[in-house]
Design a binder for these strands. Structure first.
Lengths: 361, 361
DNA sequence: CTGAAAGCGCTTACAG
DNA sequence: CTGAAAGCGCTTACAG
């Protein structure tokens, strides 16, 4: 009366049915070429029939791998502006991991209730094989901890802070170049007087009164350089301060209605602010792009969907995700091997400008 | 020369240092009250010192729990309209799970490369203790499988399809009521002639030529009922077809510019479409809300950020996430116990209308 | 090519 | 209150 269908069949069940030892089943299902193809096929079939899957815990206990990657979310992820952008990043990440049969645990750095460090916990409990870390700030402790645990990790998306920590694997887009592309585009369009909407210190992770977020200050620096090459200057009064949201930019532009007529271009440091600014310009009777050309940053899906559609700097999300995952998977592979650990790399990806209606009048 | 700091200390290490057996350490760290508080504290301290954490695999092998919940994403999640809305849902989910010390694995139902069923795999490999399933379609196979595996699961967010499967735990907002709130609001405003922007069959999971998505058809039905109570009818020609995106709604309204002057209200079945419609109205010289009052659906962050800010039906995201998690955690708890499995519930949450500038002229 | 055996790091009756 | 021992479901030298 042996039931040949049980809730969760084990290797032992398969072995029994196949009339071989557990070792043979294990080897077969793991593609060991010690086992002749014929046997492997037979066992594979039995396993499929009864719906066998390896118990990942038993397996991990020995192999020390789980088949799960941890993604550490940036601070401020709850805020719309951030989550909004990152959601598309995650989709791309998930694709790559999925194609490699890895699962994805998504977590904040710190548990917001207990205050515990989630990342440490995930690592110590061995719930992940590697980490993708999206954090604008690089804590030295954290990095030393990961190294001491031999846990592969890659920082992704945020540019390194000023004093770059040497020897860290990090992949991010070139924000300075993105800004430069926008600046040059205005110059090419022959626009001379540009208004620029920045988040000021309003990004979720900038410390009050601290230095502005490098991500945004780099965009601005590049923008200045791009304009400067054609002799266009950005004065202090040409900078408006929003807060990464649509309404903050709308309000900032409305508040500046005096003297607005002088401007024939507007650059916002992200798409949401660009959209808010466009609404304001329209309400003030200034036509986009005829009177004012507008450029955003990020190339979120909204940019194309906006009317007029928004010219913007495209963040290479797919490439970023792909490169991040591939690099991490490579590190994981190497960490199992015997070779020397590879030297760390930082990979910088070039953004590109997507020209749409808001700047092609 | 025994190092008292090792990479990953085990129970054995703690036991050795404390001069007790592994059993005692295990019990202490698991809050067994067999062990006197004093001993517990001593052992806790040693464990903390050397950075001990349970190896989750060894533990799971015996206890059959992992401390991880699986979230199954809806089809079409890659599309912006969907991911955009769900991102905020996830944030809320993550909070609740985090406060219960559960990790979250996020996955699509099917592996888009191998075609394998990710959910089955996660369950069979025992990588999750329970599942939150966001799927507009309920496959019978899937449900039987989960039951046969005694895997706790809760369907969340999508209303059940027509022929409701009895005895499934499911939590979702009342879309019909949401539509009704919008209808009644127009009636109260004294608006008589309403244009309605729907996704048609354009939602990501509706089969071509199949029946429209229940989520949206319910909103529309409720809306009709709300208007009907004040004698307002919606003719076939009052329905526009977009595709859940801003530009689709923009284009639909623009294409309908003839006869647009008759309308004094516009309802879009989600916020993105409402925003697109508002842009079109403005471009056609119709003032919001003076000429046309506009209502959206979802209450995404963009609604408040829009100018004029958007009146919309608020999806009870926080309540939904909270209720889903709490219910799932309860099911998990019960599945360990001896009591009879609880009877399944469906929980319907009431949305509410958020009145903003787009309808308060 | 194949199997018996040890062991991964825990938990939990069972016996004191 | 405490410990020795069995066992969760795998993998992998080791011996044939």
């Amino acid at each position: 009366m042996g039931a040949n269908v049980c809730k969760t069949p084990t290797l032992r069940d398969v072995a029994r049915m196949a009339g071989v030892s557990m070792s043979t089943v294990s080897r077969s299902l793991n593609q060991s070429d010690l086992i002749p193809e014929k046997t492997r096929a037979r066992i594979r079939k039995i396993a499929d029939q009864i719906g066998f899957e390896f118990n990942s815990h038993a397996r991990s206990l020995i192999t020390r791998r789980v088949g799960t990657i941890g993604l550490i979310l940036p601070p401020g992820y709850e805020s719309f502006g951030v989550s909004f952008y990152h959601a598309t990043l995650h989709n791309a990440l998930r694709s790559v991991l999925e194609s490699n049969d890895f699962d994805l645990i998504v977590s904040f750095l710190a548990n917001r209730f207990t205050g515990d460090n989630n990342m440490r916990r995930l690592v110590r409990r061995r719930k992940v094989d590697g980490l993708i870390i999206m954090q604008p700030v690089f804590e030295k402790d954290m990095i030393e901890f990961l190294r001491s645990m031999s846990m592969p990790f890659v920082f992704s998306h945020y540019p390194p802070p000023e004093g770059v920590l040497p020897g860290i694997d990090i992949i991010y887009p070139d924000n300075e170049l993105g800004g430069w592309l926008a600046g040059r585009h205005f110059a090419e369009l022959g626009r001379k007087k540009i208004l620029c909407v920045t988040p000021g210190h309003g990004s979720p992770w900038s410390t009050p009164g601290g230095s502005p977020d490098p991500e945004f200050s780099l965009r601005l620096a590049g923008f200045r350089r791009g304009l400067g090459e054609s002799g266009i200057r950005l004065a202090r009064e040409d900078l408006l301060t929003g807060a990464l949201t649509m309404n903050s930019a709308y309000d900032a532009v409305m508040a500046r209605r005096q003297g607005l007529a002088r401007y024939d271009g507007l650059f916002a440091l992200n798409d949401l602010m660009a959209m808010g600014a466009m609404l304001a310009l329209r309400d003030l009777g200034r036509k986009v792009p005829q009177d004012v050309a507008v450029i955003g940053y990020d190339d979120t899906d909204l940019a194309e969907s906006m009317r007029p559609s928004l010219t913007t700097v495209h963040q290479p999300r797919e490439e970023l995700s792909l490169a991040t995952c591939e690099h991490l998977l490579e590190l994981i592979r190497l960490s199992r091997g015997v070779g020397a650990p590879p030297s760390a790399r930082s990979i910088v990806l070039a953004p590109r400008l997507i020209v749409r209606e808001s700047s092609s009048g």
